[in-house]
Design a protein around this nucleic acid. Sequence first.
DNA 1: AAAAAAG
Length: 478
Amino acid sequence: MATDSWALAVDEQEAAVKSMNSLQIKEETSKADTNGVIKTDAPPEKTNEEEKEDKAAQSLLNKLIRSNLVDNTNQVEVLQRDPNSPLYSVRSFEELRLKPQLLQGVYAMGFNRPSKIQESALPMMLAEPPQNLIAQSQSGTGKTAAFVLAMLSRVEPTDTCPQCLCLSPTYELALQTGKVIEQMGKFYPELKLAYAVRGNKLERGQKISEQIVIGTPGTVLDWCAKLKFIDPKKIKVFVLDEADVMIATQGHQDQSIRIQRMLPRNCQMLLFSATFEDSVWKFAQKVVPDPNIIKLKREEETLDTIKQYYVLCNNRDEKFQALCNLYGAITIAQAMIFCHTRKTASWLAAELSKEGHQVALLSGEMVVEQRAAVIERFREGKEKVLVTTNVCARGIDVEQVSVVINFDLPVDKDGNPDNETYLHRIGRTGRFGKRGLAVNMVDSKHSMNILNRIQEHFNKKIERLDTDDLDEIEKITN
DNA sequence: AAAAAAG
């Protein structure tokens, strides 16, 4: 199998021209592979000549790609750990020289060309030797596909042990990301995926043979440390999805860092999130050695595709009444309603049911089997409205969600506005550039103050909505 | 406060 080396062989340009043929032949072989039997590894030993040709072809490729410089106009900001190395950006997935089985998976998923973040992140992640990356880009810009592709490319299928490890902050997100891994690796049958999540119990003393592991921090830590299902020393790629919560003190920092310490020194670390609050950003750069950095700034862009409103109430019951007034409008497509506590969520779901509205409830107090069933029904559109907590604030991608309601505004444990969670919550709608709607329920002076501070933080006007005015409700749905 | 645990 062709190496995925991105190493620069700057001195090989002459040879590169000569080896054009070898590059073409390779591409033809790849096509044959995708149509016919997928070859497993065990490559024939390469002669010196062949190695030289490989290198030359690679160098040509590097040159081609270098001419495709990242356009730094306004969106992508790239900071390289070695500022002198050339900046790559790819315009097509072919340029990445992915294994044909992977390329097939990419296209089967309907990706035609790399997204903005993928253009610069993919070449960086696949570079040889591996480099660390911290990447920030808005909801729905293709982060997941980016790191999934990186993991799948790095796997050595003949080694039947975990080599790539990805951590998600919640059970539901781990399942979702796992599905992406499965889909993208669909044509790569020797690649196997294990879910290290609550409820997935294995026999004692067993070792895992799957090359990729997706999981939540508690279970992964158990599998690595206590139960020894995973040998962490064999991990080559470590991905933190929603990386800011994964390393935040009030998030999953303890478990994530304990896992990280068990990994080998040279393990590649990839951190992805839509948000990195300042202190977390600093911490990220402390725990990730020599990172490359990619930022797709412009939060405003996300916010521009989402219309934001607030409804003024005096107490919880009024919020409930206002929500009932909105119910007809929000069920045109699908909606998510966020509450601050599990208790409020289950209360609200019960009250809405009493009113005759069909709603689903999802929170961490439910058993995982129930949680899996509910999120599945919501994905299938069998449930139109999901009442939930911050468990669903991040990453959950259901395309039909066009309305997000903050029944309670997002605040941290000190009662301060949680701007990051706000952005993540409303980012559940308006995905892939679609228009979305966010409605915030305000029930006191205090919560109005919170909302104002959120408004200031994003420098974006949140307009008042009168839910007693039917014309207004109609207006927002158009 | 929520999430994460084979505790």
